[in-house]
């Protein structure tokens, strides 16, 4: 075992797969010689050569389109979109091509591509470096959508994604790259060095895609979260003293509905949190599934805490970000309902 940040864990996953599977190829903007703007690919080009780890022009549609051609050929591309906010030019390639090729060709062709993209805010990135577009992917049949919240999960899930025979969207909560972040932005940043999930095996391992993780067992209310919001939820629970059960979804599509339903049937209450905007967000889908499966167990309306329906602001970042105070209020209201 080694101590790793989420960046190092993600890099280690690609390192393992470059070593293990000669079909693996890694590319994206600034990811080669330089090692990526977040350093996730640092040193990989030097170690594996320019034919396996290389820079691309600034053209996300080309990054994914080239990857689709390579994947259909039989290679295993793992590409980086520098920020999830930059994925829109590739949305056509992702949703109409990568996600559809196996089905439309009746399995004549397939598309095993992993598309990594840093997501979420909390870094003063403004509207073009902070977005959480997960619902734009969970709405697309044929995609698998993952978002880890710890270095350990990030490595195991990224290797699993790269071994998946279909396209995977791998959303990396960039505010967690260097340490767990609970939304208290004015306090000193924490590091993964002190967190148990910063312990990461150096070699190969995978985690199952489609399995949620119960981060905190509790009896009073179920909290559904993923990415940065897992730690915000932990802070809110600690501060309110409510005995909540916090479920880190990890995989949004497919969704581990069994774990969620078992928890809500036990607690009878549910709060869903995400950083993305509210209307049409993934929380709506979660709430619909939970109420359908748990209606007669519910003791309160299901609450959701999300970003506001506005473009992600720059100077007012913390007014947008659904921090522990807002989550705490929702927990209290749900308990009092």
């Amino acid at each position: 075992m080694a101590r790793m940040t989420m960046i190092e864990a993600i890099r280690s996953a690609m390192d393992v797969m470059l070593e293990r599977d000669q079909r693996t190829v890694i590319f994206g903007e600034d990811i080669g010689y330089f090692g990526g703007v977040f350093r996730c690919t640092a040193g990989l080009q030097k170690k594996y050569g320019i034919e396996r780890v290389f820079d691309t022009p600034i053209n996300e549609s080309a990054i994914v389109g080239l990857g689709i051609g390579m994947a259909a050929y039989g290679m295993r591309p793992c590409v980086e979109i520098q920020f999830a906010d930059y994925m829109y030019p590739a949305y056509d390639q992702i949703t109409q091509e990568a996600a559809r090729i196996r089905h439309r060709s009746n399995q004549d062709f397939s598309c095993p591509i992993t598309i990594r993209m840093p997501t979420g805010g909390g870094i003063f990135g403004g509207q073009t470096h902070s977005q959480s577009p997960e619902a734009l992917f969970t709405h697309v049949s044929g995609l698998t959508v993952i978002q880890p919240s710890t270095p350990y999960d990030a490595k195991g899930l990224l290797i699993a994604a790269m071994e998946t025979d279909d396209p995977v969207i791998f959303l990396e909560p960039k505010r967690l790259y260097n340490g767990p972040f609970d939304g208290h932005h004015a306090t000193k940043s924490k590091s993964w060095a002190d967190h148990p999930a910063g312990e990461v095996p150096e070699g190969y391992y995978t985690l199952p895609i489609g399995k949620a993780e119960i981060r905190r067992a509790g009896a009073a209310v179920t909290v559904l979260a993923y990415g940065t919001m897992v730690f915000v939820a932990e802070a809110a629970v600690a501060e309110t003293g409510i005995d909540a059960e916090i479920i880190d979804l990890r995989s949004l599509l497919p969704l581990d509905i069994e774990t969620i339903v078992a928890s809500v049937k036990k607690t009878g209450r549910c709060v869903v949190i995400h950083e993305a905007t509210k209307t049409g967000g993934y929380a709506g889908e979660l709430i619909a599934e939970v109420q359908a499966a748990c209606f007669y167990y519910l003791q309160a309306p299901i609450a959701r805490v999300t970003g506001w329906d506005v473009p992600y602001p720059h100077a007012q970042e913390w007014d947008y970000f659904p921090g522990p105070a807002r989550v705490g209020r929702a927990l209290i209201e749900t308990m009092e309902a």
Binding site: V25, E51, R52, S61, A62, G65, L66, G67, I68, G69, M70, A72, Y73, G74, M75, D92, Q93, Q96, E97, R100, I101, R104, S105, D108, F109
Partner: peptide
């Protein structure tokens, strides 16, 4: 596939860059 004919999308233009990717994969392999 066996006749060298990739699955047609119906969207226009998208497959032009995929052909480039396929050719890159051939060379890289």
């Amino acid at each position: 596939r066996d006749y060298g004919f990739f699955s047609i999308s119906g969207n226009l233009g998208t497959q032009y860059v995929q052909a480039v990717g396929w050719a890159m994969a051939s060379a890289l392999s």
